[in-house]
Amino acid sequence: METKRLDTNQIMRQVIYALVLGVGAQIYFFGSSVIVQIILASITAIIAEAVFLQIRGVKIKPAIMDGSAILTAILLAISIPSIAPWWVVVLGVLFAIIFGKQIFGGLGNNPFNPAMLGYAFLLISYPVQMTQWPGEFISFSQGIDVIFGLNNVDGLTGATRLDDVKTQLMLGTQIRDINLESVSQLWINVGFLLGGIYLLLRRIIFWQIPFSLLLGLILMSAALFFIDPSQFTSPYFHLANGATMLAAFFIATDPVSASTTPRGRVIYGFFIGTLIVIIRVFGGYPDAVAFAVLLMNITVPLIDFYTQPKVFGK
């Protein structure tokens, strides 16, 4: 097969296309308000990026056209609850673009995944808004109302299955008495999985990170599950809930902040997987992708240094 030649804009665009299925599932179950969030996030990202490029004295157009800012914005927008107030996503994107990316010198120079940095910032600062997910399908107008606070729309919110299970376990309920099923979460994850497979087939991402991340997640959750099935949920639950597939194929694979050596990628992905389970199970927040990814981002220089490939003839 002939070696293909990609370009950076194409990579960013393909990643955005691959998100369509997962986002579609979100829309199917919870309504189109996620689109509003995506639009809000994208506009904020472009403005923030343009202002900072101007300040840095870099040509604005080509840097914005690379699509990286919009990708960051979309990833953040689909990670936060689709009914979060408008200022949540705006603040998050501003934080992600300014402190996650531009302050380090723009695309390619950021040590942390900008979207996850924005997410972590929001989760710590606004835990209430960040954990109220729509409990049911929300129409477009209802979504607008909630996001912009036009009307007080009560009774729409609910917790995610991850959050719910966590609360129940804290109250002392046994796993077998908790409803673990969540059709919406399952299908959203399936959507992102299919998108991820598309990226793998198009060779936009390498197999190492998603594969080892899921492996780490399965092994860690399986270990806990075998120790005490009454206290810990099964690997399947971890795979089908939360942002697992989004993390495995779209977030951990952000090349800028991930490890770049083939062996390093395996280590990097594996530890994100295990950290996701550990933080989900033992941590204070319901989901763990952002923290797991950010923690592993810190270790990337070390991983890269120790996993250099053997050079020809050495």
Partner: peptide, 21 residues
């Protein structure tokens, strides 16, 4: 454009260097 550390260069280097580094 800026290097996004995608690592494609690593995979094609016939002498197994880390070109992006």
């Amino acid at each position: 454009k800026e290097c996004i550390r995608c690592g494609l260069c690593n995979t094609v280097c016939p002498v197994d260097l880390l070109p992006q580094q």
